[in-house]
Simulated assay, not measured.
Amino acid sequence: MEYTIEQLNGHIEGFYWFGKEDVRLTRLPASTFPRLRKDVAFLATNTAGGCIRFKARTSMIGIEIVMHPSRPYEKFSRAGQCGLDVYADGHYVHTFVPPRDGYFISVAETDGARSHDYSIYLPTYASLEIKSLCVDEDITPATKHRVTKPIVFYGSSITQGAYASRPGLAYPSILGRLLDAEIINLGFSGNGKCEPEVASLVSRIDAACLVMDAGGNLTAPEEEGIITVRYPAFLACVREQHPSMPILINNMQHIGAASWNTVFRRLCNRVRDAIKTTYETMLRSGDRNVHYTDGMDAIGPGDLDCTADGTHANDLGFSRYVSIMAPVLRRVLG
């Protein structure tokens, strides 16, 4: 059986606006792109966190896609940036790796002896069009998630998935499998700047929880102090629309350059202080649905082997992120 993108409506996760305006795989609605900064609009076309999810009994899964030109990243493998991961019942099966931009078609062998819930994780740092998905027999909806609403992650490059070795190992995707929840990945590499236009869009999502993993993109000298205004305003915008939704604030991890660059260390500390202050202010105001983890507990000054470049997490680093967030999310989501 062959399915087009239109026929996959109802099997697409991670794109909150999919099917409401069009069937483009964009993480923010395309109609808002003119109001967003150019870099945010471009990154919103990257399919991080997107997933095709279905149940089928099939001996193979075939995909036919067109990869759009992507920005090169020195520390990314092709699989990490542009791969598509196949999972069956939460277990890894295969990675499709388009060798170049443009047209790509491939087939993966799967277990045709019985039905499985399949998840195909889309690329973290690339854009694509799905021309067709092929399986032996009809697909049906996958088993419903235990968590009935999506978990939204907002942040920067690490949130988006840099530098996982493949898309299923970005920490939001791992948490989605552990918690049995749809995830919406709104990490924007270098551009998680807590802008009000983005806050307004995030506040429109009917979510089970917001994981706020932003801050690291507001450490430039020319942006000093912006975090103290934008960060609490972002959360206030979300809280206005969702008075009781759990919010998990994750503070900044250690960035290698802060070990020797005293100016950068001061800027990072200012961001960390602003994030912690926002959390404490929300608690003092009576908000009992705000929670806190510290990225330093995932990647601290002695943990740079958990990174690919002193900043961005590798697979070990992402497992550390999961280890600090999963217990809190399990508790707040019930």
Rank of each mutant, 00 (worst) to 15 (best):
N46H: 10
E2Q: 09
S165N: 12
T143P: 04
M60Y: 08
G317W: 07
G300L: 00
A207F: 12
V332E: 05
H145M: 00
F42C: 03
V322A: 15
G286S: 08
I226C: 03
D111F: 04
N185C: 09
K144A: 13
V229A: 01
F33L: 01
E240G: 15
M296A: 15
F15H: 05
H116C: 14
H11W: 00
E13S: 01
D297S: 13
V23T: 05
F42L: 11
P246V: 10
P99Y: 05
S244H: 10
M60Q: 01
L210E: 08
D85L: 00
E280T: 07
R288P: 15
H242N: 03
A126K: 11
T159N: 09
S127Y: 01
G225W: 14
V86S: 03
S77T: 07
N269P: 08
R284H: 15
D273H: 06
T293C: 00
M67H: 01
L128D: 07
V238W: 07
L283F: 05
L235M: 05
D213S: 05
L43F: 09
S244R: 04
R272N: 12
A220C: 06
E182N: 14
V271L: 09
C306A: 14
F153V: 14
D303C: 00
Y163P: 09
T228V: 01
F33P: 04
